[in-house]
């Protein structure tokens, strides 16, 4: 399942990616819609803090 997800994610990426939170949230389309933006924000904050 993880491999499938990664394949799907790679297909969704456009050449200018990433531009912002919304694009990161799109990567998370396997999550419920209301969780995507919050998870994207968590990802971005963790990217800064790790």
């Amino acid at each position: 399942m993880a491999e499938n997800r990664e394949e799907i994610l790679r297909e969704k990426l456009d050449p200018q990616y990433p531009k912002g939170f919304e694009e990161v949230a799109e990567l998370l389309d396997f999550l419920p819609e209301q969780a995507r933006l919050a998870t994207a924000e968590q990802l971005i904050r963790l990217l800064i803090s790790t």
């Binding site: 990433p18 998370l28 990802l43 800064i48």
Partner: peptide, 28 residues
């Protein structure tokens, strides 16, 4: 703040590839 935090991500990882962002999601 959101836009600025995003700017800082680019400053920290200026060479990050698309695949690396996918890996980061997987690691999260």
């Amino acid at each position: 703040p959101k836009a600025f935090i995003w700017k800082m991500v680019h400053r920290k990882y200026p060479q990050a590839t698309k695949g690396q962002y996918v890996e980061a999601v997987s690691e999260l």
